[in-house]
């Protein structure tokens, strides 16, 4: 039995390789053919806007803290109405490993991934994306979420008027 198995094991591979030779290769010829990417593929990052068209990012630094390779940096600033935003916001794509941890950390759904993976270039400095390059004109994968409608006291709406909130209790009133 041993011998028969050995002999079969020696000659079977030859048959397998011969058969494979006349099959169609599974290679996708990249620049001409493109791969069908999964819907939730992680590649180039974008900064989205909320449904009202304002920047979502509140420059909370959570994404840069979550980033394992420290490739996000920003400077926070505050507008007249108390709304925070990034004075500048920079992602160094030569370092980004496209892990998507920043998008998970983001409380405002501002930073999101796209399926655009064709980022290669000869000049590394061209891969350092500034805020203008990152900011897009749509809401990304969530069309309804607006951070300041859920939180951010008194910036977009007076206290207690957001959906799901109750107005603050009047401490000078004895009524329940």
């Amino acid at each position: 039995m041993h011998v028969i198995r050995g002999i079969r094991g020696t000659f079977q591979p030859f048959w397998v390789t011969l058969r494979n030779m006349f099959r169609k290769p599974v290679t996708i010829q990249y620049p001409e053919e493109k791969q069908q990417l999964p819907e939730r593929y992680r590649a180039r990052l974008i900064l989205t806007r909320d449904p009202d068209g304002a920047e979502r990012c509140v420059a909370c630094h959570l994404c840069s803290a979550a980033c394992p390779v420290d490739c996000i940096s920003m400077q926070a600033a505050e507008a007249e109405d108390g709304r925070r935003y990034g004075a500048w916001f920079r992602i160094n794509f030569t370092r980004c490993i496209f892990c998507g941890l920043c998008t998970e950390a983001c409380p405002t759904l501002a930073i999101q991934v796209t399926a655009d993976f064709e980022l290669a270039g000869r000049d590394p400095l061209k891969l350092v994306y500034e805020k203008e390059d990152l900011l897009v004109d749509h809401c990304g994968n969530n069309n309804s979420y607006n951070f300041y409608r859920q939180s951010g006291i008194g910036v977009a709406a007076p206290r207690g008027t957001n959906p799901g909130e109750t107005p603050p209790a009047d401490v000078k009133d004895l009524m329940p």
Binding site: T17, N20, M21, R23, P25, T27, Q29
Partner: peptide, 10 residues
């Protein structure tokens, strides 16, 4: 080339 074809590559 032959090795590639045998391994389903080009």
């Amino acid at each position: 080339k032959i090795l590639g074809r045998m391994q389903l590559r080009y």
